[in-house]
Amino acid sequence: MKILVCISKAPDTTSKIAFTSGNTSFDENGVQYIVNPYDEWYALVRALELKETLGGNVTIITVGNAVDESIMRKALAIGADDAVRIDAEPKDAYFTAMQIAAFAKNQSFDLVLVGKETINYNGSQVGGMIAEALELPFVSLASKLDVAGDVITLEREIAGGVQVVEVSTPAVISCAKGMAEQRIPNMRGIMAARTRQLTVVPAVEIQELTSYVLYDLPVAKSACKMISPDNMDELVQLLHNEAKVI
Protein backbone atom coordinates (compact mmCIF):
# COMPACT_ATOMS: atom_id res chain seq x y z
CA MET A 1 0.00 0.00 0.00
CA LYS A 2 1.53 3.28 -1.14
CA ILE A 3 0.04 6.20 0.74
CA LEU A 4 0.50 9.94 0.32
CA VAL A 5 -0.51 12.10 3.30
CA CYS A 6 -0.89 15.85 2.77
CA ILE A 7 0.37 17.81 5.75
CA SER A 8 -0.16 21.48 6.38
CA LYS A 9 0.92 23.72 9.19
CA ALA A 10 -1.44 25.52 11.54
CA PRO A 11 -0.80 28.02 14.30
CA ASP A 12 -0.83 26.44 17.75
CA THR A 13 -4.34 26.91 19.12
CA THR A 14 -3.21 29.24 21.87
CA SER A 15 -1.54 31.62 19.37
CA LYS A 16 -2.60 35.23 19.44
CA ILE A 17 -4.37 36.03 16.18
CA ALA A 18 -3.26 39.43 14.86
CA PHE A 19 -2.61 41.01 11.48
CA THR A 20 0.01 43.39 10.05
CA SER A 21 0.58 45.59 6.98
CA GLY A 22 -2.79 47.30 7.25
CA ASN A 23 -4.57 44.05 8.11
CA THR A 24 -3.49 42.36 4.90
CA SER A 25 -1.31 39.62 6.35
CA PHE A 26 -1.24 37.32 9.35
CA ASP A 27 1.17 38.43 12.04
CA GLU A 28 3.47 35.45 12.56
CA ASN A 29 5.36 37.18 15.34
CA GLY A 30 5.68 34.72 18.21
CA VAL A 31 3.37 32.20 16.56
CA GLN A 32 4.25 28.54 17.08
CA TYR A 33 3.27 26.26 14.23
CA ILE A 34 2.01 22.72 14.70
CA VAL A 35 0.95 20.04 12.24
CA ASN A 36 -2.70 20.71 11.40
CA PRO A 37 -4.50 18.39 13.90
CA TYR A 38 -6.66 16.62 11.31
CA ASP A 39 -3.63 15.84 9.16
CA GLU A 40 -1.62 14.53 12.08
CA TRP A 41 -4.12 12.79 14.35
CA TYR A 42 -6.33 11.25 11.74
CA ALA A 43 -4.77 11.11 8.25
CA LEU A 44 -1.17 10.38 9.20
CA VAL A 45 -1.84 8.01 12.07
CA ARG A 46 -4.37 5.98 10.06
CA ALA A 47 -1.91 5.79 7.17
CA LEU A 48 0.75 4.43 9.54
CA GLU A 49 -1.66 1.88 10.98
CA LEU A 50 -2.50 0.64 7.48
CA LYS A 51 1.17 0.38 6.64
CA GLU A 52 1.79 -1.59 9.83
CA THR A 53 -0.89 -4.16 9.00
CA LEU A 54 -0.67 -4.28 5.20
CA GLY A 55 2.93 -3.26 4.52
CA GLY A 56 3.92 -0.46 2.19
CA ASN A 57 5.11 3.06 2.50
CA VAL A 58 3.85 6.41 3.80
CA THR A 59 5.05 9.63 2.17
CA ILE A 60 4.11 13.02 3.56
CA ILE A 61 3.92 16.07 1.34
CA THR A 62 3.78 19.76 2.20
CA VAL A 63 3.47 22.77 -0.06
CA GLY A 64 5.49 25.34 1.82
CA ASN A 65 8.71 27.15 2.53
CA ALA A 66 11.89 25.90 4.17
CA VAL A 67 10.68 27.01 7.62
CA ASP A 68 7.88 24.46 7.35
CA GLU A 69 10.40 21.64 7.56
CA SER A 70 9.99 21.61 11.35
CA ILE A 71 6.42 20.33 11.06
CA MET A 72 7.52 17.83 8.43
CA ARG A 73 10.08 16.46 10.88
CA LYS A 74 7.31 16.04 13.44
CA ALA A 75 5.45 13.87 10.92
CA LEU A 76 8.60 11.86 10.27
CA ALA A 77 9.10 11.42 14.01
CA ILE A 78 5.62 9.93 14.29
CA GLY A 79 6.58 7.38 11.64
CA ALA A 80 6.31 8.59 8.04
CA ASP A 81 8.88 7.02 5.69
CA ASP A 82 9.51 9.86 3.27
CA ALA A 83 8.89 13.59 3.20
CA VAL A 84 8.45 15.82 0.18
CA ARG A 85 8.26 19.59 0.21
CA ILE A 86 6.99 21.47 -2.81
CA ASP A 87 8.97 24.66 -2.59
CA ALA A 88 6.34 27.40 -2.75
CA GLU A 89 4.16 29.63 -0.65
CA PRO A 90 0.73 27.89 -0.62
CA LYS A 91 -1.16 30.78 -2.23
CA ASP A 92 -4.65 29.33 -2.20
CA ALA A 93 -6.31 25.92 -2.02
CA TYR A 94 -6.32 25.57 -5.82
CA PHE A 95 -2.63 26.40 -6.11
CA THR A 96 -1.80 23.96 -3.30
CA ALA A 97 -3.95 21.15 -4.71
CA MET A 98 -2.53 21.53 -8.22
CA GLN A 99 1.02 21.28 -6.84
CA ILE A 100 0.19 18.10 -4.96
CA ALA A 101 -1.67 16.64 -7.95
CA ALA A 102 1.27 17.39 -10.27
CA PHE A 103 3.59 15.56 -7.89
CA ALA A 104 1.26 12.59 -7.35
CA LYS A 105 0.27 12.17 -10.99
CA ASN A 106 2.67 9.47 -12.10
CA GLN A 107 3.53 7.97 -8.75
CA SER A 108 0.72 5.41 -8.47
CA PHE A 109 -0.29 6.08 -4.88
CA ASP A 110 -3.09 3.77 -3.70
CA LEU A 111 -4.40 6.37 -1.29
CA VAL A 112 -4.06 10.12 -1.00
CA LEU A 113 -5.14 11.32 2.45
CA VAL A 114 -5.86 14.89 3.49
CA GLY A 115 -7.25 16.33 6.71
CA LYS A 116 -10.87 17.45 7.00
CA GLU A 117 -9.74 21.08 6.89
CA THR A 118 -6.92 23.36 7.93
CA ILE A 119 -7.79 25.03 11.21
CA ASN A 120 -6.51 28.42 10.03
CA TYR A 121 -8.41 28.74 6.74
CA ASN A 122 -11.08 26.10 7.33
CA GLY A 123 -11.71 25.72 3.62
CA SER A 124 -12.10 21.96 3.27
CA GLN A 125 -11.11 22.43 -0.37
CA VAL A 126 -7.72 20.90 -1.11
CA GLY A 127 -8.76 17.21 -1.05
CA GLY A 128 -11.63 17.47 -3.53
CA MET A 129 -9.48 19.57 -5.83
CA ILE A 130 -6.67 16.99 -5.86
CA ALA A 131 -9.23 14.27 -6.63
CA GLU A 132 -10.67 16.20 -9.54
CA ALA A 133 -7.26 16.99 -10.98
CA LEU A 134 -6.23 13.32 -10.77
CA GLU A 135 -9.68 12.12 -11.88
CA LEU A 136 -9.99 9.96 -8.77
CA PRO A 137 -12.99 9.32 -6.50
CA PHE A 138 -13.10 11.62 -3.46
CA VAL A 139 -14.64 10.50 -0.20
CA SER A 140 -15.10 13.54 2.01
CA LEU A 141 -15.08 13.66 5.81
CA ALA A 142 -14.45 10.00 6.50
CA SER A 143 -14.46 8.95 10.14
CA LYS A 144 -13.43 5.32 9.50
CA LEU A 145 -11.19 3.79 6.86
CA ASP A 146 -10.40 0.11 6.25
CA VAL A 147 -8.68 -1.55 3.34
CA ALA A 148 -9.00 -5.14 2.08
CA GLY A 149 -7.22 -5.87 -1.19
CA ASP A 150 -8.07 -2.96 -3.45
CA VAL A 151 -11.39 -2.21 -1.76
CA ILE A 152 -11.56 0.69 0.71
CA THR A 153 -14.48 0.71 3.13
CA LEU A 154 -15.30 4.04 4.74
CA GLU A 155 -17.73 5.69 7.08
CA ARG A 156 -18.38 9.28 6.25
CA GLU A 157 -20.53 12.09 7.58
CA ILE A 158 -23.38 13.14 5.32
CA ALA A 159 -26.21 15.58 5.91
CA GLY A 160 -27.94 14.34 9.08
CA GLY A 161 -26.23 10.98 9.41
CA VAL A 162 -23.49 8.55 8.56
CA GLN A 163 -22.97 6.66 5.34
CA VAL A 164 -20.94 3.49 4.77
CA VAL A 165 -19.36 3.40 1.31
CA GLU A 166 -16.91 1.32 -0.67
CA VAL A 167 -14.51 2.48 -3.33
CA SER A 168 -11.58 0.91 -5.15
CA THR A 169 -8.06 2.20 -4.89
CA PRO A 170 -6.75 4.64 -5.92
CA ALA A 171 -8.83 7.31 -4.19
CA VAL A 172 -8.54 10.58 -2.30
CA ILE A 173 -9.98 10.64 1.23
CA SER A 174 -10.43 13.51 3.67
CA CYS A 175 -10.01 12.38 7.25
CA ALA A 176 -12.11 13.50 10.21
CA LYS A 177 -12.36 12.61 13.87
CA GLY A 178 -12.85 8.95 14.68
CA MET A 179 -10.42 7.54 12.14
CA ALA A 180 -7.50 7.12 14.53
CA GLU A 181 -6.07 8.28 17.84
CA GLN A 182 -3.30 10.83 18.31
CA ARG A 183 0.20 9.27 18.58
CA ILE A 184 2.98 10.81 20.60
CA PRO A 185 6.35 10.38 18.90
CA ASN A 186 9.04 8.67 20.99
CA MET A 187 12.55 9.98 21.56
CA ARG A 188 14.12 7.63 19.03
CA GLY A 189 11.69 8.78 16.36
CA ILE A 190 12.39 12.42 17.14
CA MET A 191 16.17 11.94 17.04
CA ALA A 192 16.04 9.97 13.81
CA ALA A 193 13.77 12.54 12.15
CA ARG A 194 16.22 15.36 12.85
CA THR A 195 18.78 14.26 10.32
CA ARG A 196 16.52 12.71 7.70
CA GLN A 197 16.85 13.86 4.12
CA LEU A 198 13.79 15.73 2.86
CA THR A 199 13.00 15.81 -0.84
CA VAL A 200 12.45 19.33 -2.17
CA VAL A 201 10.59 19.64 -5.45
CA PRO A 202 10.23 22.88 -7.43
CA ALA A 203 6.69 24.20 -7.86
CA VAL A 204 4.83 24.04 -11.16
CA GLU A 205 3.42 27.22 -12.68
CA ILE A 206 -0.16 27.67 -11.43
CA GLN A 207 -2.28 30.81 -11.24
CA GLU A 208 -4.22 30.97 -7.96
CA LEU A 209 -7.98 31.41 -8.29
CA THR A 210 -8.60 33.32 -5.07
CA SER A 211 -6.72 35.70 -2.78
CA TYR A 212 -7.18 36.99 0.74
CA VAL A 213 -7.13 40.77 0.43
CA LEU A 214 -7.93 41.80 4.01
CA TYR A 215 -8.44 40.48 7.53
CA ASP A 216 -10.43 41.76 10.44
CA LEU A 217 -10.98 40.84 14.07
CA PRO A 218 -14.48 40.44 15.51
CA VAL A 219 -15.62 43.23 17.79
CA ALA A 220 -15.17 42.27 21.42
CA LYS A 221 -18.34 41.23 23.23
CA SER A 222 -19.73 43.82 25.58
CA ALA A 223 -19.56 42.75 29.20
CA CYS A 224 -21.46 39.64 30.16
CA LYS A 225 -24.72 40.35 31.99
CA MET A 226 -24.92 38.34 35.22
CA ILE A 227 -28.20 36.82 36.32
CA SER A 228 -28.93 35.30 39.69
CA PRO A 229 -29.40 31.51 39.62
CA ASP A 230 -32.65 32.08 41.49
CA ASN A 231 -34.07 34.26 38.78
CA MET A 232 -34.39 32.19 35.63
CA ASP A 233 -37.58 34.04 34.66
CA GLU A 234 -35.44 37.14 34.21
CA LEU A 235 -33.05 35.24 31.92
CA VAL A 236 -35.96 34.01 29.83
CA GLN A 237 -37.33 37.55 29.54
CA LEU A 238 -33.91 38.88 28.48
CA LEU A 239 -33.55 36.15 25.87
CA HIS A 240 -36.98 37.01 24.55
CA ASN A 241 -37.12 40.81 24.76
CA GLU A 242 -33.50 41.92 24.60
CA ALA A 243 -31.62 39.22 22.68
CA LYS A 244 -34.72 38.21 20.68
CA VAL A 245 -33.55 34.63 20.25
CA ILE A 246 -36.53 32.81 21.76
Binding site: Y94, A97, S124, G128, M129, I158
Partner: peptide, 23 residues
Protein backbone atom coordinates in the same frame (compact mmCIF):
# COMPACT_ATOMS: atom_id res chain seq x y z
CA UNK B 1 -21.77 25.30 3.15
CA UNK B 2 -22.85 21.85 4.29
CA UNK B 3 -21.41 18.37 3.96
CA UNK B 4 -22.60 18.05 0.36
CA UNK B 5 -20.91 21.31 -0.63
CA UNK B 6 -17.69 20.18 1.04
CA UNK B 7 -17.77 17.06 -1.11
CA UNK B 8 -18.58 18.60 -4.47
CA UNK B 9 -17.71 22.33 -4.57
CA UNK B 10 -13.91 21.78 -4.62
CA UNK B 11 -14.24 19.37 -7.55
CA UNK B 12 -16.50 21.81 -9.36
CA UNK B 13 -13.91 24.54 -8.81
CA UNK B 14 -11.30 22.56 -10.74
CA UNK B 15 -13.78 21.37 -13.37
CA UNK B 16 -14.92 24.93 -14.18
CA UNK B 17 -11.69 26.71 -13.29
CA UNK B 18 -13.79 28.82 -10.91
CA UNK B 19 -12.41 30.24 -7.65
CA UNK B 20 -14.15 28.79 -4.59
CA UNK B 21 -15.03 30.87 -1.54
CA UNK B 22 -16.11 28.45 1.15
CA UNK B 23 -18.04 29.45 4.22
Amino acid sequence: HDLTAKAIAPRLSVRLNAGLVSG
